[in-house]
Design a protein around this nucleic acid. Structure first.
Length: 255
DNA sequence: ATCTATTCCTGGCTGC
DNA sequence: TGCAGCCAGGAATAGA
């Protein structure tokens, strides 16, 4: 999302901001809009799953997409538009049917984003192994925990564990060096390939230009319950781990 | 510290 | 066609 939206936003000026959801924008909408007016966009980046838009005058607009949030460039605001930013050239629409996403204005980063673990795409093997050794608990909830590692969500955890041939309920501390190495490599490979493919469009995800991603066609286990494992043919199983749907191959990923 | 269930929301799909 | 129930890319919170 950052990749498609950044080139459009860089250097633009915010003429007007409008917020339509008190769930997505929890602060005073009118005050926030007033603070945004006239500012220039100096940088667009991310911190884990937080999209950070650096503005002139020392403010940052932070956007977390939640489950169904999305940024649309020059789109007509639909029934699920929760915020609209009119720029000196173009318009950015924040769309989010379920309203689990959040938009906040802060100095440099939202408080809850400050204490996250290292980025999943950047963490080195040694640091990953050390953090793993210091934690108890099952590997899947651990990988979903942004304070342990930032950036992974449900799809990419399941896909990474399959690639590394590790059971989602395996204890993190009990993974030997070979498995830790495989997992570290798998996470970066899965994320790299997913970004390359434009993300996973399960039902409605599209990038800022309205284009769907294509990584979903490469999913080996996520959403593949009952389908034969691409590696061994055993039907993919779905269980619930930490209240999240979890997909794995019972043959390739042994406990 | 780690676990579980619950909550915040809307909408699509399935089965009766 | 209607309706109940289940499911969904996330994460905070309370209580055990």
């Amino acid at each position: 999302m950052v990749r498609t939206v950044a080139p459009r936003l860089l250097g633009r000026q915010i003429l007007r901001a409008r917020f339509y959801s008190r769930f997505v924008m929890r602060d005073d909408a009118a005050k926030t809009a007033a603070r945004l007016r006239g500012r220039r966009i100096e940088a667009v980046g991310r911190h884990g799953k937080f999209i950070l838009i650096t503005l002139s005058g020392g403010l940052t607009l932070a956007i977390h997409l939640g489950m169904t949030g999305g940024l649309l460039w020059n789109a007509e605001p639909g029934p699920h538009a929760r915020a609209v930013f009119d720029l000196d050239a173009g318009r950015l629409v924040y769309d989010d049917p379920r309203q689990f996403g959040r938009i906040e204005l802060c100095e440099s980063m939202p408080e809850r984003a400050e204490r996250l673990g290292p980025d999943a795409l950047e963490v080195g093997l040694e640091e990953f192994a050390a953090r793993l050794a210091a934690r108890r608990g099952r590997i899947k909830p651990l990988l979903l925990n942004q304070a342990f590692l930032r950036g992974l969500g449900n799809i990419y955890v399941d896909e990474s564990l399959f690639l590394a041939r590790i059971h989602p309920l395996a204890l993190g501390t009990r993974l030997g060096p070979a498995r830790v190495r495989r997992l570290h490599a798998a996470i970066q490979e899965v994320l790299r390939a997913a970004v390359e493919a434009g993300g996973s469009s399960i039902s409605d995800y599209v990038d800022a230009d309205g284009r769907a991603g294509s990584f979903q066609v490469q999913h080996r286990v996520y959403g593949q319950e009952g389908a034969p494992c691409v590696r061994c043919g055993t039907p993919i199983r779905r269980i619930v781990v930490g209240q999240r749907g979890t997909h794995y191959c019972p043959m390739c990923q042994r406990a």
